[in-house]
Amino acid sequence: MNPMLALRQYQKVSGHAQTSEASPHRLVQMLMEGGLDRIAQAKGAMERKDVAGKCASISKAIGIVGGLREGLDLESRADEVGELDSLYIYMMKRLAEANVSSDPKILDEVAGLLRTVKEGWDGIAPPSPQF
């Protein structure tokens, strides 16, 4: 994961400029949390029949997943990175389908996938510095 891309993507989609204190690992966590939040907002907008809100939230979720994808080090040639790239592409396509069809089940599917990736990412958190 390219930390500078993660930082720029997080600032772009969240509107938060105060990320200089966050580690690269934490920035990726924040992106994933933001993606899950936007998916939840889109689902709520669907329930309220708020088309504009649904579209805006799904668009932001797609941007976040795209940012996560852009941060992958595809040159490493690791199979896992390629699989994660494919998963991110799949998530973005499914989010677009959810936007067109207004199907909350698709949002649940993508949220579940993103949650699983986040749990894995959370599990490899670097140790906190000891003072």
Rank of each mutant, 00 (worst) to 15 (best):
A98Y: 05
L113G: 02
L36Y: 02
G66R: 11
S86V: 06
V65H: 03
G35H: 02
Q18F: 04
G66N: 12
P129T: 13
G44R: 07
P129V: 13
L95F: 04
L7A: 15
E83Q: 13
G35K: 00
G35W: 03
E119Y: 03
K60I: 03
F131M: 11
M30S: 09
K60H: 06
D79F: 06
F131W: 14
A61V: 01
D79A: 15
A125K: 15
P104Y: 02
R48D: 08
G35R: 01
E75H: 12
G123P: 11
K54C: 04
G120N: 09
E83I: 05
K54E: 09
A52R: 14
V117T: 13
A22W: 14
S128G: 12
R48F: 00
Q130T: 13
V65I: 15
F131L: 15
D122A: 07
S23R: 05
M30P: 06
S14V: 03
Y10E: 04
Q9Y: 10
L31A: 05
D73C: 11
K49A: 14
Q18D: 15
G53E: 10
G71T: 07
A96N: 12
S59N: 15
E75I: 07
K54I: 02
R115V: 00
D50L: 04
R69I: 03
D122K: 11
L36Q: 15
L5T: 12
G53I: 08
L87W: 00
G71N: 10
L87Y: 00
V65Y: 03
I64G: 00
E47D: 09
L36A: 10
P24C: 09
V51P: 01
E109Q: 07
A22V: 05
A42T: 02
K93N: 05
D108M: 01
A125H: 14
V81M: 12
G67F: 10
G120W: 09
S14E: 07
M1G: 14
M32C: 06
T116S: 09
K54N: 04
D73I: 08
Y10I: 03
A45F: 06
A96V: 01
A40E: 13
Q11S: 12
K49I: 06
D50T: 06
M46L: 12
A42Y: 03
G53S: 03
S101I: 01
W121D: 10
G35Q: 05
L68Q: 09
A61G: 09
L95S: 01
M46S: 00
I124M: 15
D37T: 05
K105W: 06
A111Y: 01
L84K: 03
D85N: 14
V51G: 00
I124Y: 08
E97K: 13
G67K: 08
M92L: 02
K105D: 11
